[in-house]
């Protein structure tokens, strides 16, 4: 097990930018697996434990998890400039690619086969999200009564189409206060 002292760190702000650009461009259908591979295994800026801990912290906060991870990792080496470099790296090239894909698609949308291909992709994308939700739920089966909060979230947000703000204001305080009470003062 290597210690922090032996751990390599980024040489410059542009190194941070390039590392995050590279991992974002590898991330088809989700960037997190590539973030782990790049930051932990290839560049070795973070240990596996640090990666898990920083990711878990980012998940407590609003916003995309990978963006939050970039902010924390960038800040660690170069302060706010590092955070900006990491987030810009994550977003800039992929955003250009997404818009390019949209431009190509809008040129080809009149071709029926292209429209049908995208319809097929969208149905699969919906299935992927539903499967992800079921996996998340299954992982919590030991605390299955708590999933009532997930069910309430699905009914309000998915079925009744309430605004996210209302849904969160209604459910989060109840869920977190109940969890606070259940967790108890000592561990």
């Amino acid at each position: 097990m290597s210690t922090d002292a032996e751990r390599p760190s980024p040489r410059s702000i542009s190194d941070v930018f390039l590392a995050f650009t590279s991992l974002a461009l590898h991330g088809f259908g989700g960037v997190l697996p590539w973030a782990q591979r790049t930051l932990v295994e290839q560049r070795r800026w973070l240990s596996r434990e640090e990666f898990t801990e920083l990711l878990a912290f980012g998940q407590l906060l609003p916003g995309p998890n990978i963006i939050n991870l970039g902010i924390i990792v960038g800040h660690r080496y170069f302060g706010w400039r590092g955070s900006v470099a990491a987030v810009t790296g994550l977003v800039l090239c992929p955003a250009i690619l997404v818009v390019a894909a949209g431009m190509v698609y809008s040129q080809l949308v009149a071709i029926p086969a292209v429209q049908k291909a995208l319809s097929g992709m969208a149905a699969v994308a919906a299935g992927l999200l539903i499967a992800t939700a079921l996996k998340l739920g299954w992982a919590q089966r030991k605390r299955w009564p708590w999933l009532i909060f997930g069910l309430a979230g699905f009914v309000c947000l998915g079925l009744l189409r309430w605004p996210l703000l209302q849904v969160l204001v209604l459910i989060v305080p109840v869920a977190v206060l109940l969890a606070w009470w259940k967790e108890g003062p000592t561990q």
Binding site: I148, L157, W180
Partner: peptide, 25 residues
Amino acid sequence: RAVRAIRRGLSPLAVGLTLSAGWVI
């Protein structure tokens, strides 16, 4: 305790939010 409570309270909600996204799409 606060962090554990937030995580324990939000985890089941994440299931419902993800399922809602899949449902809407």
